[in-house]
Amino acid sequence: MKKLFKYRRTGLIGSPYKILVLNIVAWVIGVLWITPFIGIFMTSIKPFREVVLHGWWTISPFTFTLKNYVDALFNPMFSLSRGILNSFIIAIPSTVIPVTVAALTAYGFARFSLPIKKYLFATILFLMAVPQQMTIIPIFFLSKNLSLLNTYLGLILVHSSWGIPWITFFLRNYFSLLPVELEEAARVDGATDFQVFRKVVLPLAIPGIISASVLQFAWVWNDFFFALMLIFDPDKMVVTQMLPRLKGQYQVDWGLLSSGSVIAMLAPLLVYAFFNKYYMSGFRGWAMKR
């Protein structure tokens, strides 16, 4: 039983020399990745004057202030807090809906035989490769004709259908790695197909489901393109649409802009941090040997 759940070791194997090189590469990439963030963070907690006079990378003079955050959140013209609320209203259903639908689809692909299953799955893979920009004009007119333009529901549906193919692909591989005997045992024990799915498969696939949800949530939250095309009412705009507006009309207020960016990043970061344990094991599970 234990053996079935053993993961493939992906740790550092090899000479100390190899480990050193890998470490250096990892550190370089890590530093490059995080530097802009540190810059933005520093700018966000400095008064505007200091940024303009001394640049954003200076340690002295350095006056700590939260004024930028307060201004960004409660700007009377473009309320970032409203944007955050809208982002949640969009992102939560846009995660729950496609993950639910895709989990059922993926289980079907993983375990049931269908006459044209191979071709259907190939179609899904193909759809994953289509760029957003190619689809936006039909999506726009479709939304317009269905009177879904400039509504939460419209954007949620677009995000959901965009998420379903890749989540199906991701979860199908995850499900097909689960030991079949458990499902057979449940069938002999009296469970219907749906009970097998809900009581045996789903609990065992939690890490995979959470990984998919975290990725989908972050993707929807960070999306700018679909929101820009489909939502224009300022009251309904999501946080990524609000950000550029914080720029100001006559001069760029760097402090406001960077504090807004930090706030916008917070939600996906917290989601990653909170589900980190499952998320990592979800990916390890995905790398399990067949």
């Binding site: 039983m1 005997e181 458990l182 057979e184």
Partner: peptide
């Protein structure tokens, strides 16, 4: 009632 070769107990 069936007992599988690897017992197939539900691990969760």
């Amino acid at each position: 009632g069936m007992v599988f070769q690897n017992w197939a107990l539900y691990p969760h």
